[in-house]
Amino acid sequence: MSFRVEHELHKRRRGRNIGLGLVLAAFIALVFGLTVVKVTRGDMQMPSAEQVGADN
């Protein structure tokens, strides 16, 4: 059994860390989702050699 009472500051820090962790996780999920959409739609495809030749 611990006699140490958790300081209010530690609670606030934990809240901040959890909040930031969730924001980062959501950001990663969003970037991943965006990448999947862009790749499957062909937005990120390099132009083929024939296309480059036709442009020139």
Partner: peptide, 15 residues
């Protein structure tokens, strides 16, 4: 060490 006074350190909600 364990006083419960406000510290002035920001929480997530403040940001």
């Amino acid at each position: 060490l364990n006083t419960q006074a406000p510290t002035g350190e920001a929480g997530f909600g403040d940001y």
